[in-house]
Write a protein that binds this DNA or RNA. Structure first.
Lengths: 336, 336
DNA sequence: TTTGTAAGAGCAAACGTTTGCTCAAAATCG
DNA sequence: CGATTTTGAGCAAACGTTTGCTCTTACAAA
């Protein structure tokens, strides 16, 4: 139904190649002002748009980017996506979004789409350590940028320093006088979880406290994972007075567990989160957490990806942003 | 870099067309078991995938769907998208997501992409009344389904009954003994806002209360819009004892305003929302709201779209789901 | 006037598929 | 055994662009 280049050329009485050169502002174009005007006029009038498929076939690129996230329902990843989307739009790219749910076959699906050449590059926010999908991207030479989590140190990456972030949170709790500080850990499959645990332990050690494995519980990904893990931590002879959660969602679980056990926050149990999702500020008391500028990270990732795809020299390989501690009522009675 | 059909055919010693027919399980295919086996084997070995661009050019379809939302950062729209994504994936489609922010040019961008034929159909969650973009889809015969909001009654649509929903919320407040019930209204550009206001007014009228325009304030889209509108409602000689908010985000603004004015919820001010975003259950007190099964709506919309695109007879034109009232502490002291 | 060159625009191949058609050989039938 | 159908697979056009090359005409220089 839409008009084609050939039809338009016929209407204008010129050869298709001429129209093509006019449309694309071919630098080596030599065309008389008269013809150019006539064709340009017709372009406006017909609202001609080159066929993306034909163009993509010839040019071997689609101007479509792919974004892989664990779950777009998680506000952190929604924000990352939004950043990518904004930066991509500015450069005339559109974005395919896929939630993997950590499920292998979903991830494979999108990679196959990719292999079919309909995607020019990928932003991956779902990487696990030694992620096979990331390897695939690498071995196939497909432009990609990892975000938030990394697979190993070999890829383009944008994120925050998880070790420092968790260290900040733990140091804050130490400064508030806590001695027994527990950790709601994430799966060791993710760089974020590993590094945050490392930061937590480093802060303890630096304060002369031996990290106690009994004070670390791994949260499952399922809903309520944080609740159960917190119960495990608190149902002991010498329960902790504070808990460093690997992320805000786990921290919310800790809130629930505390409520169920009749513990008051922060008096009986102080809690820190990670990511500073919008919900964090809405909890009562507010959740002390590490702010992660998700949308900016998404933007930066997209720009890095586009730069990588472009002809120019590749500027940066890893951008690691400093994390920022946001203190709220969950650790500080003064801010209730 | 990926292998092409022609190359694969050469390797197998057959004609490209034969390979194509085998790949696509051409029903009219007649090929000897021997050749078939040889080719299939090679397909596996090489991991051949047809080039999406070439295929799209020939077949005139991309197997890509577009989703238009106001903002993916809003959990309601993230959920709708997730539903679309899941249903689409099951049918081998991928999904492009675009946040319009209500901004015209962003919307135009995506429509142009669409016009370039790289999208087979659209799910639109951002429709305003008499939306020009929706008209465009209609006049150009592009398959589309409207979600949540509608433009007029002429398009395929999936959503809930906003009038009934708001009526339920208002009736609940009446049942709790409230007489002066205000309304945080949305922009009259949206069907949701118009219908919810209608439901609010209907419930009042049915209870013998004349709707009072002074008790209706329109919230702006900007952050804090709900706060300011609530202040306007409360800073009067006879302030309302309850407020029906057009959605949960506005209701959160009402929470903030109440807090700033030292009003306790629900004792001094009862509040209802709409949509039941995850945050609603997390607020203290919990927000009474109308549950909207966003993800299911997204799924249904995608299926309706695919059905519409398929050859088969089009089954349903409008699916309107019944809304469900979720009572929490913001209206009921018994549930604090 | 001859030659050279530049401007303006057309030619045709190529990108990787799909598919209606043709065609030879083999199988079936009377 | 000749005629007809079936089987198996190749041929080539088409989808809508892009782009290196060629060709014609006009114009300037020698």
């Amino acid at each position: 139904m839409p008009i084609t280049l050939k039809e338009l050329a016929a209407k204008a009485g010129v050869h298709p190649s001429t129209v093509s050169r006019i449309v694309n502002d071919d630098p080596r174009l030599r065309v008389s002002p008269k013809t150019r005007a006539r064709v340009k006029d017709l372009l406006k009038k017909t609202g001609y748009r080159p066929d993306g498929m034909a163009r993509g076939l010839k040019l071997r690129q689609s101007f479509v980017l792919g974004v892989l996230v664990p779950d777009v329902l998680n506000p952190l990843f929604a924000a990352i996506f939004r950043g990518v989307e904004d930066a991509a739009l500015e450069e005339g790219y559109t974005v395919i979004l896929s939630s993997t749910d950590g499920h292998e076959d979903r991830e494979r699906e999108i990679l196959l789409t990719l292999q079919s050449r309909m995607i020019d590059g990928m932003v991956v926010a779902s990487a696990s350590l030694r992620d096979p999908s990331v390897r695939y991207l690498r071995t196939h030479g497909i432009p990609h940028v990892l975000v938030n989590r990394y697979s190993d140190m070999k890829d383009y990456f944008v994120g925050t320093d998880d070790r420092i972030g968790a260290k900040l949170a733990t140091e804050h709790l130490l400064a508030m006088g806590h001695k027994r500080i527990a950790h709601l850990a994430g799966s060791p499959r993710f760089s974020t979880a590993v590094n945050r645990r490392k930061g937590y332990e480093e802060a303890l050690t630096a304060a002369g406290i031996e990290p106690d494995p009994a004070l670390v519980a791994e949260t499952s990904l399922a809903a309520g994972g944080g609740v159960m893990a917190t119960h495990r931590l608190l149902d002991t002879r010498k329960p902790p007075t504070a808990v460093v959660a690997v992320n805000d969602v786990a921290a919310v679980g800790a809130y629930d567990a505390a409520e169920q056990m009749g513990l008051r926050i922060p008096h009986d149990l102080a809690i820190t989160g990670y990511n500073d999702i919008p919900l964090a500020a809405r909890l009562r008391p507010g959740l002390t957490t590490i702010h992660v500028p998700a949308q900016s990270i998404g933007r930066a990732a997209a720009r890095m990806l586009l730069e990588q795809m472009g002809a120019g020299p590749h500027e940066t390989k890893r951008v690691v942003l400093p994390p920022e501690l946001i203190i709220r009522g969950s650790t500080d009675q003064g801010r209730l």
